[in-house]
């Protein structure tokens, strides 16, 4: 275990028993979350809407005070040493909070000055970042002409103006097209190479798998699993085998026949039965043999990569519910978890 090599303050982010409750509606957004983020890598916070990911980031970014529990960022207490924390972090998110009335350059300049950098330094840094994120040509245009992907890149650039050693990225690619997502992933990987620690929240297993060295899975404010993406996938199985039967009756019989091929329970939805398996083709062949031997008719068979839903099904025995805990969101936002 590499973890024994670290002492507590060596973690970029460390929190113990974080609870956040909202008296309104009696919501428990976070229910005793403890985690340690090692330096210089991407740490993933995976979970569906309403699982408490954004609340966690907002607490660590000193935007929100926890109801109880202790959290430190770069060794500084997020409540008692909030200003010190703010000097060491960068925050970018799902809702690119750049100013639409300004140009890209002006946005970076403003954030740089608010990071208390000297004017000459900010000018150079803004130009540098626009280049780094492929925004040089658009740098002096109003943000109204920017695409979603460009805004998100600018948002990330803005979070980097002050060269923070620790970066919080709250669902940075949600709602982006595949190409923009790839670009942003590349940019994040480039940052980690320079020694930056990234705490990333995401709804996408694929994203966590690609970027995160370690991750925790949150559900309803609690950590329900943690480990490396490989460990999680091993627990989960790497592939989903989906069988479509001819009738509900057949589906029930078929599900019983193949139940022991997976470590986690089969998911039956109408005539479709899904199980997560470690070795797709071999298990598929075995499933087919058994079903064929009982002369049950199949309408379809498919193997696919597991989705976040599969992770949840495997970990909790039920599907991820789309509970929207709106209390954590800034005013006027309806769809933030």
């Amino acid at each position: 275990m590499t973890i024994s090599l670290y002492t507590v303050s060596d973690y970029a982010v460390s929190c113990t028993d974080i609870v956040k409750t909202y008296p309104k509606g009696n919501v428990r957004a976070l229910d005793g979350v403890s985690l340690n983020v090692p330096r210089g890598q991407v740490f993933g916070l995976l979970g569906p809407n309403g699982s408490g990911k954004t609340t966690m980031v907002r607490i660590l970014a000193t935007i929100l005070a926890p109801t109880s529990g202790l959290a430190t960022v770069n060794g500084f207490d997020v409540v008692k040493q909030a200003k010190k924390v703010r000097e060491t972090i960068g925050l970018a998110g799902q809702y690119a909070t750049v100013d639409p009335n300004l140009t890209g350059y002006e946005n970076l300049y403003m954030i740089g000055r608010l990071n208390h950098l000297e004017k000459a330094v900010v000018r150079q840094r803004a130009t540098e970042l626009l280049e780094q994120f492929n925004l040089t040509d658009a740098g002096h245009r109003s943000l109204k002409t920017y695409s979603g992907g460009m805004r998100r890149r600018l948002d990330l650039a803005a979070a980097l103006v002050g060269r923070p050693p620790i970066l919080f990225l709250d669902e940075p690619t949600t709602g982006l097209d595949p190409q923009s997502r790839q670009d942003l992933w590349g940019a994040i990987e480039g940052l980690v190479e320079t020694g930056v620690t990234v705490l990333l929240t995401t709804q996408y297993l694929e994203e966590a798998d690609r970027l995160a060295k370690q991750l925790v899975v949150l559900e309803k404010g609690k950590i329900i699993a943690e480990g490396t993406p490989a460990q999680l996938k091993a627990r989960l199985g790497t592939t989903v085998l989906a069988l479509t039967f001819h009738s509900l009756d057949d589906a029930a019989r078929g599900a019983a026949l193949i139940a022991d091929l997976s470590d986690s329970p089969a998911n039956r939805d109408g005539t479709v039965v899904e199980i997560t398996v470690n070795s797709g083709p071999r298990t598929a062949a075995e499933a087919l043999r058994r079903i064929d031997a009982q002369q049950i008719a199949l309408d379809g068979l498919a193997l696919r990569e597991p989705s976040l839903d599969d992770v949840f099904l495997s970990l909790t025995g039920h599907k991820a519910e789309d509970v929207v805990v709106d209390t954590a969101a800034p005013r006027g936002r309806k769809d933030r978890s």
Partner: peptide, 19 residues
């Protein structure tokens, strides 16, 4: 500014709150 979330971003910066 509150609605757009801009003030939220500002809160994570080491600025004077009164600003």
């Amino acid at each position: 500014d509150l609605e757009k979330g801009l003030i939220e971003r500002l809160r994570a910066l080491p600025i004077a709150r009164m600003a």
